[in-house]
Design a protein around this nucleic acid. Structure first.
Length: 822
RNA sequence: GCCCGGAUGGCGGAAUUGGUAGACGCAAGGGACUUAAAAUCCCUCGGCCGCAAGGCUGUACCGGUUCGAUUCCGGUUCCGGGCACCA
């Protein structure tokens, strides 16, 4: 066998073999336990980065481990292929997004294969393929039919020069990231998914996902943002009423004015003739303020009086109705009852416009009064100035006032969610066309199923000017109305790319199915995903959308599960020199160069060894050397051991020396530890450390105990290779073959440990005096408490610390520790 | 501001249920081999005192519970993340 380890040669050999034998292809098999393993699919940006290397290395360990343990493992890979970068690259390079994307996919697929990842490549999909996005259009139409997809007007960031909507992330300091024009707010008709219909269930199930990290669940709960309160009607003097949502109905008696969002439907109609000019100017001013700036907390509270009044339903007080810049149109009802004494924003507003402050809650400690207070009092206290509610605690009053309002018919208890419906319209080309037609006579119509799919046309020009190219393509836009046959227009917006990633994991179950989006039987076999692995940055967006979609598809009859991902692992970022790897910081490690120099196995090994998966990984080039050295050491050890391990006769336990028994103990303890580290904890770093210790033990054992311990050496080395296989598969397959095995490691299965061989014959007992470590004694494993005590008291060091004092108490932790208290 | 995490040697990290703090690896220092270098192998490696045996001390800081605390509790500081004019 070769003296030197040549990763390039070894890895090419096994990758060829895996490819030619299609080693990781799976089909449904009711006789075996399924395991659906998934890593978040990448955006084909050009090349993989270290974050991918880490993510997919973690996944591959789990996949190979589970396969060795006999599971039928589904482990697919694909491409999140629609999106803006492709379009921008096309504009820049005068190319086409389709070409750019498919070239990137080809290159990155090669990189992933070079890493030796055990995917079922037959299931590969790209979301920009017609065979994928056509089914998404079908789902959209089913959602449309159920009212789960709808169109409404909403305010968005609009770049007047690029003529397109921008996501919040694409607005930098109030200006367009591409052309630097000032961004303004524009009201546009947009398509939405009714995720709010599922708010309650999405929230409820955050308590039913024990396999998810708590912090992700917390983030989702915060995002959904359920709050309990009341809807209260404030009658207008001229008829009608303003409806507010509040969580502080206990402060109702202190409401002295009303604040509406400038976008509130009543805003203009409430303006009296004398105030109209001012009101219009104010609305204009607020609307032209960029959203980011407008919602900044330090923005000065500003408003304008409409001239109208409403009545406090509790006190009958005439409350002036203001428009206020801090009231959000899309939270609650867009109207806020202002209680300046007990809300800081209302307090500031009241001070500015000289509005009355009325205290209705007094603190238990120092009483407050309107003249001297400098900030609102927002804590609980005792009710005052509140009619029959005076004297009770404000916490109690919440419930009482809510009941009272319901009884009088001027309000009702309600819950409110922070979660908003998901706006999915994008004025972009490189996405899935929304399958809708607009007819002047018939209105908004779904594209009939027989006319699906709406194919994204490829013959468009990319100038980077004038918004979506689709809108300028007459052959796409102009269409006959499916209902009346008259000329009509197609929707030219495409769907948010998060829609594609909301169901790709379902499509993997039946990627070639042509009868619909999903083959229910196959989805039934594989779902849900047993282990999902990806970056924490998707904690809310993708992971919430995917949960929503799964529930929608369940209700549409496509799947039978409530939740898509049983267990979620959120891996940390890859850090170097104290910062996330990025081109601008110049701290990027290129996976290609790494694999070129050390091979894929070393790259995988180090990325798994340097930190547990959920923590950030601090990249260290010298650390990689260490991982490479370890593989070389093991290679050499196996090469030098070959002459002694030819015999396949089993280890004869009874004839082993004490030292040999010790090594065998290490072998079986290592199997036990590595198994639980991988299976129960996903602590691959400690699993690898344990295997390193095993190899170190073999290293110091071998030279002086050969040739008589050939069978034991074989057992030790084979165990090391089997345990190490999920981490460095090419390396282990090669050495497995070199040590005389055929048929591959996975077929051999995961090693089991021998309880007896792993058991210690002697135990090290730590002896403490008054809780301080004073000695270590060795006793036979079967020694009882009494004999441990007698050995401990006889120990010179221990007795020196006892100085003849009588022990008050002796605590014995069996097999571990003895603490003598004097 | 609110809500989550986290803080352990020069560095990454380990200590799984309250029971030997620092596994494993990196870096560093010393040595062997070599004409030399690389590679490899051996030794040392939290701090202080000590020739040594050994002792004291030490897991961000202060306090508590306990026979015993990196681990549990209360408070403080710093760092990271999420949400945030949410009524």
């Amino acid at each position: 066998m070769e003296e030197r380890y040549s990763p390039g040669v070894v890895e090419a050999k096994w990758q060829r073999k895996w490819a030619s034998e299609n080693s990781f292809k799976v089909t449904e098999d009711a006789s075996r336990q399924k395991y659906y393993l998934l890593e978040m699919f990448p955006y084909p940006s050009g090349r993989i980065h270290m974050g991918h290397v880490r993510n997919y290395s973690i996944g591959d360990v789990v996949g190979r481990f589970k396969r060795m343990r006999g599971f039928n493992v589904l482990h697919p890979m694909g491409w999140d292929a629609f999106g803006m970068p492709a379009e921008n690259a096309a504009i820049q390079n005068k190319s086409h997004p389709a070409k750019w994307t498919s070239e990137n996919i080809d290159y990155m697929r090669g990189q992933l294969k070079r890493m030796g990842l055990s995917y079922d490549w037959d299931r590969e999909l790209a979301t920009c393929d017609l065979s994928y996005y056509r089914w998404e259009q079908k789902i959209f139409l089913e959602m449309f039919a159920k009212g789960l997809a709808y169109k409404k007007s909403s305010f968005v960031n609009w770049c007047p020069s690029c003529e397109t909507v921008l996501a919040n992330e694409q607005v930098e300091d109030g200006a367009c990231w591409r052309c630097d024009s000032d961004v303004n707010q524009k009201e546009l008709e947009q398509w939405f998914f009714r995720i709010t219909d599922y708010a309650e269930e999405l929230l409820e199930y955050t308590d039913k996902l024990p396999g998810w990290p708590e912090r992700v669940l917390v983030m989702q709960r915060n995002w959904i943002g359920k709050s309990y309160g009341c809807e209260i009607d404030f009658p207008l003097e001229n008829g009608g009423a303003i409806k507010v949502f509040t969580t502080r109905q206990d402060t109702l008696f202190g409401a002295t004015f009303m604040s509406l969002a400038p976008e509130h439907p009543l805003a203009l109609s409430l303006a009296t003739s004398g105030q109209r000019g001012e009101v219009e100017a104010f609305i204009q001013k607020v609307k032209s303020t960029e959203k980011v700036r407008r919602t900044a907390e330090d923005l000065e509270k500003e408003g304008v009086f409409t001239g109208s009044y409403c009545l406090n339903p509790a006190t009958g007080l005439r409350m002036p109705v203001y428009l206020a810049n801090f009231v959000l149109t899309d939270y609650g009802t867009g109207a806020v009852m202002a209680v300046p004494a007990h809300d800081q924003r209302d307090f500031e507003f009241a001070k500015k416009y000289a509005l009355p402050v009325k205290i209705v809650i007094q603190p238990e400690t120092e009483p407050i009064d309107p003249a001297s207070m400098t900030a609102a009092y927002t804590e609980p206290g005792t009710m005052v100035n509140s009619g029959q509610f005076d004297g009770i605690s404000s916490l109690e009053a919440k419930e009482c006032i809510a009941d009272w309002l319901e009884g009088r018919g001027s309000g009702k208890k309600t819950v409110n969610f922070r979660l908003r419906d998901w706006g999915i319209s994008r004025q972009r080309y490189w996405g899935n066309p929304i399958p809708v037609i607009y007819c002047d006579s018939c209105g908004t119509l779904p594209v009939p199923e027989k006319d699906l799919p709406v194919v994204l046309p490829l013959d468009v020009a990319f100038t980077g000017e004038g918004g979506s190219p689709l809108a300028k393509l007459d052959s796409f836009v102009n269409v006959d109305c499916p209902q009346c046959g008259k000329p009509a227009r197609r929707e030219t917006d495409t769907m948010d790319t998060f829609v594609e990633s909301s169901w790709y994991f379902l499509r993997y179950c039946s990627p070639d199915y042509t009868g619909g989006p999903l083959d229910k039987e196959k989805v039934g076999y594989w779902m849900s995903v047993d282990q999902y692995i990806g970056g924490i940055e998707h904690a809310v967006l993708h992971l919430l959308y995917a949960r929503f979609f799964t529930k929608v598809l369940r209700d549409l009859g496509h799947v039978n599960v409530d939740e898509p991902f049983t267990n979620l692992l959120t891996q940390g970022m890859v850090i170097k020199d104290g910062a996330k790897m990025s081109k601008s910081k110049g701290n990027v490690v290129d996976p290609n160069a790494l694999i070129e120099k050390y091979g894929a196995d070393t790259a995988r090994l180090f990325s798994l060894f340097a930190a547990p998966p959920e923590k950030d990984l601090d990249w260290n080039d010298q650390g990689v050397d260490g991982s490479f050295r370890f593989l070389n050491r093991l290679w050499k050890l196996v090469a030098e051991s070959l002459p002694f391990i030819g015999s396949t006769s089993p280890v004869r336990v009874e004839s082993l020396s004490e030292e040999a028994k010790g090594l065998r103990r290490v072998v079986h303890k290592t199997i036990r530890k590595v198994t639980s580290d991988i299976d129960e904890r996903f602590h691959f770093n400690t699993a690898i450390a344990a295997i390193m210790e095993l190899v170190n033990a073999v290293y110091s054992f071998a030279p002086k105990n050969l040739p008589e311990n050939g069978p034991l050496l074989r057992e030790a080395l084979e165990s090391a290779l089997l345990l190490l296989y999920p981490f460095v598969p090419h390396f282990c397959e090669e050495l497995w073959e070199k040590t005389g095995h055929e048929g591959g490691i996975e077929k051999t299965g995961w090693p089991s440990y021998d309880q007896e061989a792993a058991a210690d014959e002697e135990l090290l007992i730590v002896v403490q005096v008054n809780g301080k470590l004073r000695g270590r004694i060795t006793v036979p494993a079967e020694a009882g408490e009494d004999s441990v005590k007698s050995v401990a008291f006889a120990d010179d060091k221990v007795s020196a610390f006892l100085e003849g004092k009588t022990p008050k108490k002796v605590i014995y932790v069996p097999g571990k520790l003895l603490n003598i208290v004097v």
